[in-house]
């Protein structure tokens, strides 16, 4: 499965569009990590625990999007966009969406 945020994949040609696919996840902060982050709020600087948390969450959103694309029989997702929103206090939603397509290699096309 190839993923790209432009509308094509280099060296490949799109033969079929299969529609939009999406994946999301809502993550809450861990209490322990939140306390540590509270200390960081005094000194400033990077909140590594949150950076990791959001990286993982985004990864999961992408995996869900990929699962949906595979279900449609796609072998790539193009034009992928990410979006983040805070739904309630202490939780964030990460959302990934794109267009599922079927690709063939340029040489075969």
């Amino acid at each position: 499965m190839q993923i790209s945020n432009i509308e094509l994949i280099p060296g490949h040609r799109i033969v079929r569009h299969l529609g939009m696919v999406q994946g999301n996840t809502v993550r809450a902060k861990h209490v322990g990590k939140d306390i540590l982050a509270g200390f960081k709020n005094i000194f400033g600087g990077e909140l590594k625990a949150y950076t990791e948390l959001l990286t993982e969450a985004r990864e999961e959103a992408v995996q869900r999007m990929i699962a949906q694309a595979q279900h449609l029989g796609a072998n790539a997702v193009v034009n992928v966009r990410f979006s983040t929103s805070s739904v309630t206090a202490g939780a964030a939603e990460l959302f990934a969406y794109g267009t599922a397509v079927e690709l063939v290699e340029e040489s075969q096309a």
């Binding site: 945020n5 094509l8 709020n41």
Partner: peptide
């Protein structure tokens, strides 16, 4: 738009960071 060239691959790359203000 892709600049001209024979591009073999185009994977998605990303980087994130969470930064806090100090008191």
């Amino acid at each position: 738009h892709l600049p001209p060239g024979d591009w073999q691959q185009g994977p998605l790359v990303g980087g994130n960071v969470v930064i806090s203000l100090d008191y």
